[in-house]
């Protein structure tokens, strides 16, 4: 071992020591609070069963719709039994219905019905299944929800009699009000919109 390599060894040792001291100093002097992590590891992994039990939403393109068919006449029977007392039968009444009128037999200018105001047919299925009937929410089977959806589309003259709807045809229905929908364009500033 010649002198220069010994010298080099010393240099390396000193450099390493210096680096170690610098790191120690940095660790000592820096904010004792550690960097906020991106992940904390809180919560449990959600298994497929758990997700499936809650994953009830239906999207306009049909994602989330269960397989099934809806029949208008079956829907009328269920509507008469479970819905008409709040939502009416489409005729004018001289009192306020407990629920919204979902269709009207004689078109009126101001009435917001499924046929005049709702932009997507899938919303009918999603909403009935999650929240109706008001006094027994979530009590209808998917089959019943399909029948009711078919009846309400028929009562609003969106589909003709004898139409059968299913998970493929429901998303394809173009609702009359869809063309009227615009996305909010307010953005503050001096414009009043």
């Amino acid at each position: 071992m010649d002198k220069s390599s010994v010298f080099k060894g010393y240099l390396i040792a000193i450099a390493a020591l210096g680096a170690a001291i610098a790191i120690a100093l940095y660790a000592f002097l820096r904010d004792p609070q550690e960097e906020t992590p991106d992940k904390f590891g809180f919560g449990k992994v959600a298994g497929a069963d758990r997700i499936k039990a809650l994953d009830i939403d239906v999207m306009p393109d049909g994602r989330g719709l269960p397989a099934g068919t809806g029949d208008i006449r079956q829907g009328l029977i269920i509507y008469t039994e479970k819905c008409v007392s709040c939502h009416g039968n489409g005729e004018k009444v001289d009192y306020k219905l407990p629920g919204d009128a979902l269709f009207v037999n004689q078109p009126a200018k101001k009435t917001k019905t499924i046929g005049t105001y709702w932009p997507y047919a899938t919303t009918i299925f999603d909403y009935i299944r999650r929240a109706m009937p008001y006094n027994a929410p979530g009590s209808l089977s998917d089959q019943e929800v399909y029948h009711l959806t078919a009846y309400l589309l028929y009562a609003n003259k969106v589909i003709p009699a004898n139409t059968v709807i299913n998970e493929h045809s429901l998303p394809k229905i173009v609702m009359p009000a869809k063309k009227n929908y615009v996305v909010d364009d307010r953005e503050g500033g001096s414009d009043i919109r």
Partner: peptide, 14 residues
Amino acid sequence: KLSDAPFMTREETS
């Protein structure tokens, strides 16, 4: 639920 489109629920349409 994270998705690539709005769900068009009753409360944001009707």
